[in-house]
């Protein structure tokens, strides 16, 4: 079936099966930052923003995003302040989970520009980093929120 959406800022028409997950469809489009990992929505490595809100690409039936705005990290074009903050704070190791964290941070800061530590922890609860970069990820969010970096 045809799927019309706004993908990373561009009106796009994609081909998909009704029972396909958005993750598969986006990867087929070459959006390699969306990564199949747990298959059950618990790890966040396939996070995408749909109308600005984070969703799991692995749990979203593709036809459900018909007519909506879908953003992946590729759509941030590398100039995003959140991405810069992740680099400055060294908030990543292997990089597999990083796009999911970046998008989750963007959604959090859009809703809550000055999140508390508890709010940051809550927002990232569903993003797993097996390398354990969490301390510096929190630093990155604080930097992106315009706060000075501080030790936990």
């Amino acid at each position: 079936m045809k799927l019309a959406l706004e993908l990373n800022g561009r009106p796009t028409e994609l081909e998909c099966e009704p029972d396909e997950m958005l993750l598969e469809v986006l990867r087929r489009e070459g959006l390699g930052s969306v990564r199949a990992t747990c298959g059950i929505g618990v790890c966040g490595a396939c996070t995408v923003l749909v109308d600005g809100e984070p969703l799991s690409g692995c749990l979203t039936l593709a036809p459900k995003v018909e007519g909506r705005e879908v953003t992946t990290v590729e759509g941030l074009a590398g100039a995003d302040p959140v991405q810069r903050a992740f680099i400055e704070a060294h908030g990543f190791q292997c990089g597999w989970c990083t796009p999911g964290f970046v998008l989750t941070a963007k959604a959090l800061l859009a809703e809550n520009p000055q999140p508390s530590e508890a709010e940051i922890a809550e927002a990232f609860g569903g993003n797993l980093c097996r390398c354990g970069s969490y301390v510096k990820i929190v630093d990155a969010v604080r930097r992106a929120a315009g706060e000075p970096a501080g030790a936990r």
Binding site: M21, G39, K64
Partner: peptide, 26 residues
């Protein structure tokens, strides 16, 4: 029936179900 579809998707990803027809309430 597909409401949010998260649980259904987990079942589909695990190969526990393979629906032939989906009724989305979206």
């Amino acid at each position: 029936v597909v409401a949010g579809g998260s649980f259904l998707a987990i079942l589909m990803n695990q190969g526990f179900v393979a629906p032939t027809s989906l009724l989305s309430l979206g």
